[in-house]
Amino acid sequence: MASDTDLHHPARHDLRLTDVLFALSDPERLAIVRQLSDGPLEMAQCYLSDPSMPKSTKSHLMKVLREAGVIRNEPLGRGRRLSIRHDDLEARFPGLIGSVLGASVDA
């Protein structure tokens, strides 16, 4: 049974390329995914380039990434643990996430 802290994550077969590309098209969202490329992080450890950005904006960025199927956002104690859905993304769109993460930041 799902608890109130469980968030919806699309199933692998429901991932859509247009949603993933849209989620990765924003510089702040891409920066978050780059931070997660070395492994899972607690949501509080993820930073934005503009520290004055409201928490609600950060939450919205995470929501777009989660709803597109790019990241998994799961409860961890009183916080949240974020991770990239590498296996699901690779299965649906082979090479995409690796190419995006391997691309130059200035490209």
Rank of each mutant, 00 (worst) to 15 (best):
M1H: 07
A2D: 12
T5Q: 14
T5E: 15
D6Y: 03
H8L: 10
H8Y: 13
H9C: 05
H9Q: 13
P10V: 08
A11T: 01
A11E: 14
R12M: 03
H13G: 03
H13E: 15
D14H: 07
T18C: 12
T18R: 15
V20N: 07
L21C: 07
L21Q: 09
F22S: 09
A23P: 03
A23N: 10
A23L: 11
L24E: 14
S25T: 13
D26N: 13
E28L: 05
R29T: 11
L30P: 01
A31H: 11
R34F: 09
D38Y: 06
G39H: 10
P40H: 10
P40C: 06
L41W: 01
Q45R: 11
Y47E: 15
S49W: 04
S49C: 05
S49G: 08
D50F: 05
D50W: 08
D50A: 10
P51Q: 15
P51S: 14
P54V: 12
K58L: 07
K58T: 08
S59G: 11
L61A: 11
M62P: 00
K63M: 08
K63A: 10
K63G: 03
R66I: 04
A68Y: 07
I71T: 12
N73K: 05
N73A: 11
N73F: 02
R78G: 02
G79Y: 01
L82T: 06
L82P: 00
L82I: 05
L82N: 11
S83A: 15
S83C: 01
S83P: 01
I84M: 08
H86V: 04
H86A: 01
D87F: 00
D88E: 15
D88S: 09
L89G: 03
A91M: 00
F93C: 05
P94V: 05
G95P: 00
G95K: 02
G95D: 07
L96W: 00
I97C: 03
I97T: 08
G98D: 14
S99M: 10
V100T: 08
L101F: 04
G102A: 07
A103M: 13
S104D: 14
A107N: 12
A107D: 15
